[in-house]
Simulated assay, not measured.
Amino acid sequence: MSTVGKRIKSYREKQNLTIEDLASRTALSYEFIKAVEEDDQYPSLRPLVKLARALGVRLGTFMDDQVSCDPLIVKLAEREEELTTHMAGEEPGMIFHSLGKSKTDRHMEPFFIEMLPESGKDTTLSSHEGEEFIVVHSGRVRLIYGQEESILEPGDSVYYNSVVPHNIGAADGGKAEIYAVIYFPE
C-alpha cells in the first residue's frame, strides 16, 4: 500500500508541479510539503484539505487504494490506520481510520479517529468549507467552535459548519475515540 505522502507526490508530479508550485497554491511552506511527501506526517487534516484542493482531488483520493463496488463494508477487524497527525515534538495526536476508503464516488469522508492525549494540547483553530458530524464513542472530547468551548462524552454528537474556526481534541489529558463524517463541497 502506498502512503498518503507518496500519493500526494504522485498527483503533484502527474500535474508537472514542483513543490514550490504547490506551496504557492496552498500557502503551505516548501519544507512542510516536502515533509508530508517524504515523512508522511501531518499536524492535522487542514493542510491535507489544502493540498487536495490545490491538486483538484478529493481528500479521500490520498487514501484510496482501489475501486470498490456498492455497498462498501468495512469490518472492524479489517480497519486500518490511514494517517496519523503529529503534534509539536513529533508526538502522535490523532490516528485516522478511513471508513470510506476505496469508494471513489463518495461525497463525504467518514473516519474512526483515535484521539491520543497529545491532541488535547493543541488548541489551534482551523476552518474549511463544508460540514462535520462527530459522535463520541469513548472518552471525553473538547470542542472549540468559534468562541465557545464544549465537552462531549460518549454518545454525544455535534454537527457544525466547518467554515467557523474550530478545534477538536481529547479532553482532560485522556484518550478518546470518535466517529467523524466530513463533507467538503466540490
Rank of each mutant, 00 (worst) to 15 (best):
169 G>W: 05
158 V>A: 13
136 V>E: 03
145 Y>G: 03
143 L>F: 02
153 E>Q: 03
149 E>K: 15
151 I>A: 09
144 I>P: 04
151 I>G: 09
155 G>I: 11
152 L>P: 08
154 P>T: 02
134 I>Q: 02
161 N>G: 06
167 N>A: 12
136 V>R: 05
169 G>K: 10
136 V>Y: 01
161 N>M: 08
140 R>Q: 09
164 V>A: 02
161 N>D: 15
140 R>V: 11
148 E>Q: 15
166 H>P: 10
144 I>K: 12
167 N>F: 01
140 R>L: 01
160 Y>T: 02
160 Y>L: 05
147 Q>R: 15
168 I>Y: 12
163 V>G: 08
161 N>S: 12
166 H>I: 05
159 Y>Q: 11
142 R>E: 15
170 A>P: 14
154 P>H: 06
158 V>W: 07
146 G>K: 06
134 I>S: 01
164 V>N: 04
150 S>Q: 14
145 Y>W: 11
170 A>E: 10
146 G>A: 00
162 S>L: 07
137 H>Y: 01
160 Y>D: 00
142 R>F: 12
150 S>P: 00
135 V>I: 15
140 R>P: 00
137 H>T: 08
170 A>Q: 13
170 A>S: 15
159 Y>L: 08
153 E>G: 04
144 I>C: 08
170 A>H: 14
156 D>N: 13
169 G>E: 04
164 V>T: 11
146 G>Y: 01
168 I>R: 13
151 I>M: 11
135 V>T: 14
154 P>Y: 07
160 Y>C: 00
156 D>R: 08
152 L>C: 10
153 E>S: 12
163 V>N: 13
141 V>R: 09
167 N>D: 00
145 Y>I: 08
143 L>T: 03
155 G>T: 12
157 S>A: 10
151 I>W: 10
145 Y>H: 14
159 Y>P: 03
135 V>D: 02
154 P>E: 03
162 S>T: 13
147 Q>F: 08
139 G>D: 12
135 V>P: 05
133 F>Y: 08
149 E>L: 07
138 S>I: 07
146 G>W: 03
133 F>H: 04
166 H>R: 14
148 E>N: 15
158 V>M: 10
155 G>F: 11
